[in-house]
Simulated scan of single mutants.
Amino acid sequence: MKDVLPLTTVSIDGLNKLFNHRTRMGIMAILLVNDWVDFVSLRDALDLTDGSLASHLKALVKEEQIEVEKKFVEDKPKTSYRATPEGRKAFEAHLAELESFIRRIDN
């Protein structure tokens, strides 16, 4: 029988629960490297239904991580999103914590 090494306690307190869902992570990752991104582009890039994307966007808007712009282009409504400065900072901190967590458990 192999010796089992004791597990080290690793805190995940620094992770932002808002970004723990893969869809919200995907939204934030796209918005971090782009200025404004329209709803259809986000939906297609993440391969989501309109309803699923809308619910995740609503949660991020409510928490002021992203902002929304609604306008008409050639008489058609166009809704676009971008990360707020607070959202950028929070997501970057979340990613840094994830990287730190992976380094700790990988050693």
Rank of each mutant, 00 (worst) to 15 (best):
M1P: 14
M1K: 15
P6R: 07
P6C: 01
V10F: 12
S11H: 09
S11E: 10
D13L: 11
G14S: 14
L15W: 05
N16F: 06
N16T: 14
N20Q: 15
H21L: 11
H21Q: 12
R22S: 14
R24C: 07
R24G: 01
A29P: 00
L32D: 08
V33Q: 14
W36E: 10
D38Q: 03
F39I: 03
V40S: 07
S41Q: 13
R43T: 03
D44G: 08
L46M: 08
D47K: 10
T49K: 06
A54G: 06
A54M: 09
S55H: 05
L57D: 05
A59Y: 04
V61N: 14
K62N: 12
E64Y: 04
E64K: 12
E67D: 11
K70L: 09
K76T: 00
K76E: 00
P77I: 02
S80Q: 02
Y81R: 00
P85K: 04
P85A: 08
P85R: 02
G87L: 02
G87T: 07
R88G: 03
F91K: 07
F91L: 08
F91D: 04
E92V: 13
E92K: 11
A93S: 13
E97R: 13
E97I: 08
E97G: 12
E99R: 14
E99T: 10
F101Q: 05
I102K: 13
I102D: 06
R104C: 04
R104N: 11
I105N: 05
I105V: 15
D106N: 14
D106R: 12
D106W: 10
N107W: 01
